[in-house]
Amino acid sequence: MHLSLTINGKPVEAEVEPRTLLVTLLRDHLGLTGSHVGCDTGQCGACTVHLDGRAVKSCLILAVQAEGRQVLTIEGVASGETLHPVQEAFRDRHALQCGFCTPGMVMTALDLVEHLDRPDEEAIRQGLAGNLCRCTGYRPIVEAVGDGIRARTGAAS
């Protein structure tokens, strides 16, 4: 099938089988290998991207479901060499160890930073429930998301 969509702000045209997963289109067809496939069963969240501004698992979506929509991947988050404030927060807090889960964590964090009103730890932890870190380094990740929310809302730490 022919497919038209926008990825990281750029129009993309592709020919795909209907059964092609969005993450397969991103990684194998387009070379955007930042979205990782950790489990391929929708458990780990390493493949998280944004679809029309909301975090979704690209291994649980067909590429054809994204027809005509806006997809944002980890490759589209920074502005050139300038990291997004949420990426900076991850660096400041050492919120990654092996780094495999990090692209998905950042994409989920961006959704949380956009939609949570305040840096409530319980809400952040619940928000991150769909992303697994096998290094178990959750504490700095939660702190980084809190930093992102504080930076957006201007709340005191």
Binding site: G42, T48, L51, A55, K57, L60, T108, D111, A129, G130
Partner: peptide, 9 residues
């Protein structure tokens, strides 16, 4: 329900 990503789809 489920997690954030599941609720979004």
């Amino acid at each position: 329900i489920g997690d954030l990503q599941v609720r979004n789809m």
